[in-house]
Amino acid sequence: MNKIKTLADLKRMQENVKSKVSLRDKASRAEDLVQVKVAMATCGIASGAKEVMEFFVVELDKRGIEAVVTQTGCMGYCFAEPTVEITLKDKDPVVFGYVDTKKADEIIEKYIKDGEFVDGIIPRNYETIK
């Protein structure tokens, strides 16, 4: 263990360890951030949802977008796996189908950054029973 020798050391260290707990800090203000839910049921994982999720986690961080990336269950669109639901602040959630890492990249650049729709949106065809 390297000792902390200056206040700057401590600040640097805080930056390093912050990522480990950032999920918890973001959770307390999730409504204000971009929320990404990756369907990670058997069907999703089999079609590569794990890599997609990893991609979102790493890339969003790299591109400086504050987001909460979580896994969720099967959304029912097994034909279109991997599926990803994106909720931008103050907007209705949108579900994208057939998301591979290339598509994910497009989603980040266009939809998340500019709110511009891209191909592959699965229209909402259900009502949630409240």
Partner: peptide, 9 residues
Amino acid sequence: EEAIAHDAY
């Protein structure tokens, strides 16, 4: 480390 991430010290 968790404490430091939350401003300890």
